[in-house]
Amino acid sequence: MPVEVRDLVPAFLDFWQQAAEASTERQLALWRDYVTCHPEVVHDVIRDGGEPDPAPAFARYPELIGRITANAPLATGWIEEAARLVAPVLQAQDLTVPCVSMVGLARSNGWVSELAGRHTLFLAVEQVPAADAARILTTHEMAHAIQLRLPEARAEILACLDTTEPGVQRRYLNLNGWHHLPDRIGYLVGVRAVGQLRRAYSWAELARWGTDRAMVELRRVLAGCAES
């Protein structure tokens, strides 16, 4: 399963190189420029409606800078390893998960949230104390990221299940770089739905269904998945 990792740690290191010995006023000015260019930095605060206050982080960055520089070159590898471990278990090898490696405000260490309309994995390297912790954290968050993408796709497909418009069908079954969900995700949703139906019905029973019965059963399965 491919991942798209945006590494914002170098941007932080550029910021802190200028800000570490600067006055408070200068630090705040540099921080505002940094956050304007990379709003993901305060995402763990503003996603809950909070107002970012950098002062506590400024006080902690000097003690965390060694950890930050040590983790910086490893973060992408941790994320990629998590994708390799989790995707086969969740049968999500065809999904692409956007990820952000960054230095945040010394609060959350990792989370999944919507960014630009896509469920995105965030890893704040200043809050990762060791490689083992990083692997546990990224694997956990990768599972959340994948699961969020699948219920989202199921809900959309359920909503337009009866459509006969070719454009809607192509959205889920063909290349769709203009859409927010991964290409051909309809096939993955279909495989998962059939797998769930197979828990209750044999292949012979499924093969004998007419269109009406198949649509009723598929609608039931998709609605159940979308609510889970």
Rank of each mutant, 00 (worst) to 15 (best):
residue 86 V to D: 07
residue 15 F to N: 14
residue 92 A to I: 03
residue 38 H to Y: 10
residue 163 T to H: 10
residue 143 A to L: 06
residue 194 V to H: 07
residue 210 G to E: 02
residue 2 P to Q: 15
residue 155 A to R: 05
residue 223 A to C: 05
residue 5 V to H: 14
residue 157 I to N: 02
residue 40 E to A: 12
residue 108 S to C: 07
residue 158 L to N: 03
residue 215 M to P: 00
residue 113 S to K: 03
residue 172 Y to P: 07
residue 18 Q to G: 08
residue 156 E to A: 02
residue 165 E to P: 05
residue 115 L to Q: 07
residue 119 H to N: 04
residue 195 G to S: 04
residue 227 E to L: 12
residue 66 G to N: 11
residue 113 S to L: 01
residue 7 D to C: 11
residue 82 A to C: 09
residue 4 E to H: 13
residue 176 N to A: 11
residue 123 L to W: 14
residue 128 V to K: 13
residue 225 C to G: 09
residue 34 Y to D: 05
residue 220 R to Q: 07
residue 10 P to W: 14
residue 107 R to W: 09
residue 172 Y to N: 04
residue 158 L to Y: 02
residue 149 R to T: 01
residue 6 R to G: 05
residue 148 L to G: 01
residue 210 G to V: 00
residue 129 P to D: 13
residue 210 G to M: 12
residue 142 M to N: 02
residue 189 V to I: 08
residue 163 T to Y: 00
residue 126 E to Y: 14
residue 42 V to G: 00
residue 69 T to V: 05
residue 109 N to T: 07
residue 102 M to Y: 12
residue 135 R to V: 00
residue 13 L to H: 13
residue 133 A to N: 10
residue 67 R to Y: 00
residue 117 G to E: 09
residue 148 L to K: 06
residue 116 A to M: 10
residue 194 V to P: 01
residue 144 H to L: 02
residue 140 H to L: 05
residue 187 Y to F: 11
residue 161 L to D: 01
residue 19 A to Y: 10
residue 101 S to K: 02
residue 125 V to G: 05
residue 191 V to T: 10
residue 94 D to G: 06
residue 202 S to L: 00
residue 34 Y to S: 11
residue 74 L to D: 11
residue 53 D to V: 08
residue 58 F to E: 00
residue 197 L to A: 13
residue 52 P to C: 07
residue 114 E to F: 07
residue 51 E to W: 11
residue 163 T to M: 12
residue 33 D to W: 02
residue 46 I to R: 15
residue 135 R to S: 11
residue 112 V to Y: 03
residue 86 V to K: 05
residue 111 W to R: 14
residue 150 L to M: 07
residue 33 D to V: 02
residue 163 T to D: 10
residue 132 D to V: 12
residue 169 Q to F: 10
residue 97 V to M: 10
residue 26 R to Y: 12
residue 223 A to W: 08
residue 170 R to N: 09
residue 194 V to M: 01
residue 191 V to K: 08
residue 93 Q to G: 14
residue 208 R to A: 00
residue 66 G to H: 13
residue 219 R to W: 07
residue 138 T to Q: 04
residue 11 A to M: 04
residue 188 L to F: 01
residue 13 L to T: 15
residue 208 R to V: 07
residue 38 H to G: 01
residue 129 P to S: 13
residue 134 A to Y: 13
residue 114 E to W: 09
residue 186 G to Y: 11
residue 195 G to C: 08
residue 158 L to S: 02
residue 144 H to E: 04
residue 101 S to D: 09
residue 203 W to V: 00
residue 61 Y to G: 07
residue 123 L to G: 03
residue 142 M to Q: 03
residue 167 G to L: 13
residue 5 V to G: 12
residue 68 I to N: 04
residue 172 Y to V: 05
residue 165 E to L: 11
residue 31 W to L: 04
residue 157 I to W: 01
